[in-house]
């Protein structure tokens, strides 16, 4: 493995996404990416008694689809890396309890999806593991309860507010040749430009995404045109144009290739305000929709930049500003004959 400057990893071996698994809730299932997910639940409670159990059910389903599609059993997995938005990442901990696999819990808020994927790829590349399973989840009702108000409370919604995606995504990272390669990762720095409004995370996270994307292109020497798509995690319809503008000011134009998972996963008429957010937002779009497009080669090179706001429910009340982070992973479709 080689390190480029301080933040970018280029993997020495060919690292692949062996298989992916996704599960989503009812609203995501009615969105424009419907059909790209392995399990689409009809009810928000996923047939469970509590929201917490529903979120666990999402991650459990995503993992079982992922293992089944890869043709792997629990014993083939050397490490399990997972994270979510709940206090002490309990969803991941409780799912890890069901498997006899060494576990590393991770937290990077909504950037956890690419944080776990980048770390998994690095562990496989360095030879410390052969097959790593990574997973993340988020659930609208558990996140509402944790970060905002009770789900049935009639609080007013703001236009800048995002809507936590109900879903979970899992992937197996391996050296065994597959259809999609994980070739590079750029690890983000924590950026805080003084936004203190917890209902405006898109604006708060845009500078972090800009920093990571800028660094990625500086380190690799590429240009945005070299990529088919740059997707950000959950900047929403508010944060995405700000990111474009931040980079335009520095002389980098990503507007033609930039999309945001938060606006891809819902139609504009769905009641989600500025768009989707949460760990699952970037995870289900990447492991569902983007994986399928890369596998069928309608997309060849995609940079996934998962963004995260590193706050908890009390820090905004204590007048703290919001530290943010973004991690980027470069996914490439595998060319015919290049698999050996």
């Amino acid at each position: 493995m080689s390190k480029i400057n301080r933040q970018t990893w280029r993997f020495n071996h060919s690292i692949y996404l062996g298989a992916t698994g996704t599960a989503v809730g009812p609203l995501e299932a009615r969105g424009p990416l419907s059909g790209n997910f392995d399990k689409e639940f009809e009810h928000l409670d996923c047939g469970e008694k509590s929201w917490a159990k529903a979120e666990q059910s999402l991650m459990r389903r995503a993992i079982s689809f992922c293992l089944a599609k890869a043709g792997k059993a629990e014993g083939d997995i050397d490490l399990f890396l997972a994270g979510d938005l709940m206090d002490q990442t309990v969803t991941s901990n409780f799912i890890a309890r069901e498997h006899r696999v060494p576990f590393l819990g991770m937290f990077g808020a909504c950037s956890t999806s690419m944080e776990t994927l980048a770390a998994s790829a690095q562990l496989v590349d360095s030879g410390f593991a052969d097959n790593v399973l990574c997973a993340v989840s988020s659930h609208n009702a558990t996140a509402e309860r944790q970060f905002r108000y009770p789900t049935e409370y009639g609080g007013p919604t703001k236009l800048t507010q995002t809507f936590t995606v109900t879903g979970a995504g899992a992937a197996i990272v391996t050296k065994e040749p597959g259809k999609v390669r994980v070739s590079e990762a750029t690890i983000g720095r924590v950026i805080d430009w003084g936004i203190d409004d917890a209902s405006n995370l898109g604006t708060a996270m845009a500078p972090a995404a800009a920093d990571t994307i800028w660094t990625h292109f500086q380190d690799t020497g590429r240009k945005p045109e070299d990529y088919d798509l740059i997707v950000t995690g959950d900047l929403s319809s508010v944060g995405a144009p700000i990111l474009d503008e931040l980079l335009l000011e520095k002389g980098m134009d990503i507007t033609n290739v930039h999309q945001d998972c938060g606006t891809m996963i819902y139609t504009p008429d769905q009641p989600v305000n500025a768009g989707g957010s949460g760990c699952a937002c970037s995870a289900v779009v990447t492991y569902g929709y983007l994986y399928n497009r890369l596998a069928e080669k309608s997309l060849n090179r995609v940079l996934v930049v998962a963004t995260g706001a590193l706050l908890n429910s009390s820090t905004p009340k204590e007048k703290e500003t919001i530290p943010c982070i973004a991690h980027a992973v470069l996914l490439e479709s595998v060319k015919e004959g290049a698999e050996s």
């Binding site: 236009l159 800048t160 936004i195 203190d196 604006t203 508010v238 144009p241 700000i242 000011e249 500025a274």
Partner: peptide
């Protein structure tokens, strides 16, 4: 000029929904 960490909160207001 958005790339100004000190005044970002103020300057970004032009990009907020009305």
């Amino acid at each position: 000029m958005l790339n100004d960490p000190k005044n970002y909160k103020e300057n970004v207001k032009a990009y907020q929904p009305k």
